[in-house]
Each structure stands twice: as structure tokens, then as C-alpha cells.
Design a protein around this nucleic acid. Structure first.
Lengths: 232, 232
DNA sequence: TCCTGTGAATGGCTTCACAGCG
DNA sequence: CGCTGTGAAGCCATTCACAGGA
């Protein structure tokens, strides 16, 4: 009777998960994996919410975007919820990641153990510096940028992380897109243009610090005001 | 002392800037500084919006949170707007940043040129590894964690960036807070607990990749569905 | 009775259209 | 006449209170 193209019945997998909820799901996943490693099998929404730093209703609402797999009156099965989140995020098979730019940041990313244990594998490294090309970093040989397209094709990489200077980021981004990479995470401090079909996310350390500075300045001003003017 | 504590009159500086707008303001600032370096003096909201990747009304609304300093019929003075954003973000004086953890990521941060040119100066480096302590990185000597409190006091650092393993992050975070650091940027993949008076921001590479994976999987599923079911 | 699941209301961001000034 | 500035409307996400099942 029901023949919707959903993978499983009773799961709202056609719905888009709101961005804010999506970000929190990754936090829950990490907390659940820690719990699983510690041997915990069941957990209540209140406990899990606390370890993730959110309110219990927020947690339950977020999980409800994936379906209903808790037990009323009891709580959640740690392993089951972890698996459901992994499935929803697309982490059941490994994504092949290429890292473009093997400076300090690129090395940090290449050696980041969180990748391999969470559904991501680094399969290629690229750098423009002839002194770096050919070196072995985190068990991989660094390829020259000139071989970008061929190595991407050969390794089957479908994601890329860009840890390159701002000036060359757009050019390399264009080449990644042309080579068929559909998901890019950029650490370069520039606005990159990509076609709508390509997913681009940006991590910007200068932006983060500037936002901190804004709040810090605000806190200082409030402090000064309450000092000098003790008004109603 | 009779006048208002506002730096300038007619500026809504008591208002909080919405988080989304705040993040975009940092992008505008970078674009404006590029323009200034290129010698451009005036720009319209349409041009600036395009280089920042947002719509013109969004740009104008964002700038209006700081005040009104454009010229109707003409556009914005690049230098003036840059200065106003810098003032609003608290970048007119330099913030002193301590970097905790001098692995590859810490080194990348210490050497990041964006800091010094944008109101941030790295004044202290810390690491737990005896082989790293004492080394010179980006012109600074690496201090041992044991000297955290004394070096923070001596250098007057008021911001900290944590590039340390998850396991030791909360302990170090507590010590930073106890030492009076009010703003912390963490790269550690854990939820950190801080008192409400302390500003904490988090950069999480695993989260970013997982969000990309979610969208990538969704794009694949959509593709498969439209393949198998040739709709009316 | 417990804790999960969810519909409804609140609050905030974004967008738009037009008012306002050079 | 051109472009900025902004009030208002629409929309989305978060929050809450309660329904619902073990």
C-alpha cells in the first residue's frame, strides 16, 4: 500500500534536518560513541542532553527528525541511536577525503585521528611546494598540484579539505569542482564561489576570534557602565 | 560624565548584533580591507554584497546595526565602513592571545598571518611535551603548562586558543578560566563547560565533515530516486 | 509512573518594498 | 534620479507543555 521511495518505513528521511539540529546530532554521536566505549548501554534524554550541553527537549526534538527509536519510560539504547545518527549522516560507508595544502594545518588535518574512526579516510595529499611534494605525511605520499585531477580520479576521492593560502583557493576550488568533488571544506579566509550542486563549508579562525572580541568588548563596556552609572 | 557612555552619539551600540549578522560583518571587513589595499575608496551595497556572497538587502541591514554611515545615492566609503566594523567588533586595540597546545595545529595558528594584521597578537605558547617546551615557534618560546598561570599574568593575555587533545581540554580550560581568561576558542572535539561570563567558541572539523557527508548522501539519494522512478 | 514523542506557540532572522536623503 | 536606511511581513527554528506508550 505504501510504496514511497523511503529506505525504511516510518522514517521521515525525506525531510531535511534543520542545520542547527544537524550540527548538534554530530555532538550527540560523539557523546554516544564515548558512552559505548565506556560500556554504557542505556541513557535517558536528560543525561545525554547534559553531556552534549543542550536541553532535554532540544535533544528529543533533534532525534525525532530521524525517527522514534527510544523506549518510553526507559530511555535510549546507546548503540542503536549511535547507529541511527551515523546512518542519517551518511557515515555507514567511508568517505574518501583529499587534503589540498600540506602546511602545518594540512599536516594537523592529515594526522587527525578523529577522521579514520568516524567514517572518513584521507586518501590523497597535495601541495605546491616542491620541497614538500614526495614527502611522506601520515603514511601518504604528497602529490604535486599538477596531478590533482589524475590522483583524484585514481583514488576516488569525493571530498576535499582545502588548507591553502587565500590567493590560490578559488583556482584550486574550481579545479576540484571540475574534477567532480561534490563536498569541500575550506580553511582559506576568502569567500569561494561554487555551483549550487557543490556543498561548501568554511572554517575561519579570524572570524571566530573577531566574534569573541566583539563579546569581550561588550562585556567590558557593560562592566564600565555599571561602575560609573549606578542608575535605575 | 554627564553625557552618555556611548563613544559616539546616534549609534545603537547598546543593541546586540544578531549572531548571523555578526559573522557576516567579519566577512565584510575582510572584503573591505582587500578593497582598501587595492586603492578602492567607494563601493555600493550591491558590489560589496556580491564580493561577500550575500544579497544587497542583507548587507545593508547588517551595516545598519552599527549605524548609518553610507551616502545615499553614492554608496559607502570603504575606509570609513572598515573602521566602523572594526570599532564595533572591538578590534581597535590589540587582543593578546595565548595558544595552548603547540602541535601541528597550534603551529599553524601561531604562524597564521591573519592574526597580527587584524587586531590579534600571539603573546604566549604552551605545551605539555618536554621536547617542545623551550623551542622557538613563530618567534616565541614555548612555555610549559606548569607555568600557565604565571605566564598568562605576565603577558596580560586575555584570550586563549586551545589546540589540545580532547582528554586534557576541560582541565586546561578550567585553569584558563581561573586565571582570568574571558574568551576561549577551542579546537578540541569535546563539549567544554565554562561559566556564563566566559565566552567559548568551538571549531570542530569532524562536525564539519559530517555535515558535508549528510548533504552529499542526500544528493546521492535524490539522484538515485530520480533515476529509478521516472516521474510523470 | 516513568520518560519519550510531538503539535503549538513563541521569538528571531531574513526578506522585501518603499521611504528618505544626497 | 540613485542608492542607502528601515519598518513590516513572512518564514523558520527553537522551546514548551502535554499527550502517549512501556
Amino acid at each position: 500500500m505504501t510504496h514511497l521511495p523511503d529506505t525504511e518505513a516510518a522514517k521521515p528521511s525525506g525531510q531535511e534536518i534543520p542545520p542547527a539540529a544537524l550540527a548538534r546530532l554530530t555532538i550527540y554521536l560523539r557523546a554516544l560513541n564515548s558512552l559505548m566505549a565506556a560500556g554504557t548501554e542505556r541513557i535517558s534524554s536528560e543525561q545525554l542532553a547534559e553531556s552534549a550541553g543542550v536541553s532535554p527537549p532540544t535533544l528529543r526534538k533533534d532525534l525525532s527528525y530521524l525517527g522514534s527509536f527510544g523506549t518510553r519510560g526507559v530511555g535510549y539504547d546507546v548503540g542503536l541511536v549511535s547507529q541511527e545518527i551515523s546512518a542519517a549522516l551518511g557515515l555507514m560507508h567511508e568517505w574518501k577525503v583529499a587534503i589540498v595544502g600540506v602546511g602545518n594545518l594540512g599536516r594537523a588535518l592529515a594526522g587527525y585521528s578523529g577522521f579514520s574512526t568516524k567514517g572518513f579516510g584521507v586518501v590523497a595529499l597535495f601541495d605546491a611546494d616542491p620541497l614538500v611534494v614526495g614527502a611522506e605525511v601520515a603514511g601518504l605520499r604528497v602529490s604535486p598540484i599538477a596531478e590533482l585531477e589524475s590522483v583524484l580520479r585514481h583514488t576516488g576521492a569525493n571530498m576535499a579539505v582545502m588548507a591553502v593560502p587565500a590567493g590560490v583557493a578559488q583556482g584550486l576550488c574550481d579545479r576540484l569542482v571540475a574534477a567532480g568533488v561534490m563536498s569541500i571544506l575550506s580553511f582559506a579566509p576568502v569567500v569561494l564561489q561554487v555551483p549550487p550542486s557543490v556543498q561548501l563549508r568554511k572554517v575561519d579562525m579570524a572570524t571566530e576570534l573577531q566574534i569573541l572580541a566583539y563579546h569581550a568588548q561588550r562585556a567590558q563596556e557593560t562592566e564600565n557602565n555599571s561602575e560609573s552609572s549606578a542608575r535605575p
